[in-house]
Structures are given as structure tokens and as C-alpha cells.
Simulated scan of single mutants.
Amino acid sequence: MANNQVDIKFPKGGVFFIVVAVALLILFSKSTVTIGPGEGGVVFERFGDGINTEKTYGEGFQIVAPWNEMIIRKVRQQSVSDEMNVLSVNGLEVKVSGTVWYEPEFSNLGLLIKTKGEDYERELLDPAINAAARSVFGRYTPEQLYSSKRDVIEQEILDEVQKLLKDQYLMVKRVLVKDVKLPPTIRTAIETKLKQEQESLEYEFRIAKAKKEAERQRIDAEGKATANKILSASLTDKILQEKGIEATLKLSESNNSKVIVIGSGKNGMPIILGNQ
């Protein structure tokens, strides 16, 4: 049985064109990059000066030389949460958990990566947050940390972090202290004290309210007494006689049967006798 063999012959130069096409495809794939939403990119020039700090690439399709590398990082606002142990002003250890919102400066992303590395959160942000938190919490007592100073502490930590990161190409937007954990005995003592203070304030409020009510009643009684005194002093005999005469005249105009004796009453006031 004869073997049937089919010889496939490439046209002259065909292999060359295939090799070139494959090379171009590989070259193109290494020369293009897509930067996603909320991201930015900087070019690492392998045969140049390293990170190109002059330009930050925005979202979308970008072309770079195949021997260079595009480093892509998030440039939108991000958050990091952490828990740490700090000391209060009297040396008591307190466990604090919180969240920090930060954002790299888009136009200076190259400088940020060049000076602090790609892991700039660990190299730059974390140490700044830890230093600021320990500095601020060390100014307050456990009672202040647990109760009334939360908003003030958050603002002070933010101010400290922003001061530490000034001209470092990384912006911190907000600090939130989510929880402050004290030793159980200290926490119970603080809660008991706060409860007693609240009860004391309520008691003082009730006393103050009662005093104000008593004062109001006293002023009201004095006002009525003064008014009665003035009214009594103004009712002279002449005024009473005039009022009596006016009443007599009105009664005389009535159709009801009556007897009116003029001048027979006390102080010359009329006496009215009669019925309906």
C-alpha cells in the first residue's frame, strides 16, 4: 500500500512574515495598558532615570514603550482602618480603633512613588497616623477619651497627620475614632461616676425649677396685693356715691316694680325696696 504524503510549502518569505507578525503582536501587547476608573499611572523608564515624575496618566487606553513599565495605583479617596494601643496622659494603656480617609495627589503620583515607593501607605501613611494618634491621646485622661472629647480628638489627630504629611504628596481628608476600649475596672468606674454626675445635675435642675416657681408665685402675690391696695385707695366716698347714683338711675329705668328711697342708705346711698 503506497503512502500518500502531502507536502505543504510556504511561499517564499512566509515564515519571515509570521515571525514578524508574532513579534509585533507581542510588542503591541507589551506597549499598551488600560488604566481603570479611579486610577492613575506613572511610567518607569527602564533605560532612563527610573520613575518619570513629569506626567501622571489618567484613565483609559495608554501606549508606552515596550521596554518601560506602567505603574498603576488608585488615586481616588481611599480608607484604611487600624487598631492600636496608646497611653493616656496618666499612663493607662488604651486600645483605640479608627479609620482614616486619604488620597494621593494625582499630579504628584510619580514623586510619591519615587520618594516613598509603591507601598507608600505602609512606608508613609501608617507611621504618620500612629505618631499623631499617640501624641493626641497622650494629652487626655481615660474619662475624656471615653466620653466627651471624641470630636476634638478626631480633629487634633487630623491636624497632626496633615502636619506630618505636608509636602509628602499624600492628603488625609478625615479621621474617625470608632471605639476606645478601656480596662473593665476603669470603664465601670467612669460609667458609675458619669451616672452620679447626671443624677446630681437632674437634682440641681429640679431644685432650681422649684425655686423659680416659688419666686414666680411670690412676685404674683405681691403684684395682686399691690393692685388691691391701689384699688382700695382709689375708692373714696365721693366715687362710691357717684357709682351708687349711676346704678340707681339705671334701676329706675327698669319696668320692674320697686321702691327707691333716696338718701336713706348708709352715707346717703339710696335704699332699693321691691321685687320682680
Results as ranks from 00 to 15, higher is better:
S81C: 01
A208T: 10
D82C: 02
T141K: 08
Y102M: 04
Y120A: 04
K9E: 15
I129T: 05
K238F: 05
G58D: 06
K173I: 08
K74E: 11
F28T: 14
E242F: 08
A214T: 00
V136H: 05
L25K: 04
I26P: 01
F17L: 15
E246R: 14
A132C: 06
V152E: 15
S148M: 02
R122T: 11
G117H: 09
L87M: 11
I72K: 12
V64F: 05
Q196M: 13
N228C: 02
R134D: 10
K163I: 02
E45T: 02
R122F: 08
V172N: 03
K250R: 15
K238S: 15
T188V: 13
Y169I: 03
L109W: 12
K224S: 05
K266L: 05
S97P: 02
K211L: 10
V89H: 03
E69N: 03
N130A: 09
I129C: 10
E202G: 03
L240H: 02
A210R: 12
T236E: 06
P66Q: 00
A132N: 07
N68K: 06
F106G: 02
S81H: 07
S148V: 04
K193G: 11
D49L: 01
S97K: 10
K74T: 03
I271N: 12
R174V: 01
E83D: 08
V175W: 06
S252E: 11
E54W: 02
G138V: 09
I239T: 06
E93H: 05
A133D: 07
L87I: 04
L240N: 10
F137Y: 15
F17Y: 12
K116M: 06
D151W: 11
L24A: 15
Q5F: 13
Q62A: 01
K163T: 15
V152W: 05
L240M: 13
G58Y: 03
L87C: 05
G223M: 07
E39N: 12
L165R: 13
T192S: 15
D179W: 03
R206Q: 14
Q78L: 08
L112W: 14
N130M: 01
I272E: 09
Q276H: 08
G60M: 04
Q5L: 14
E69G: 01
K74C: 01
I245D: 12
T115I: 07
A247E: 06
N85P: 03
N3A: 10
E204R: 09
M84Q: 10
A128C: 00
F137G: 04
G13Q: 07
K9S: 09
L124F: 09
S29Q: 15
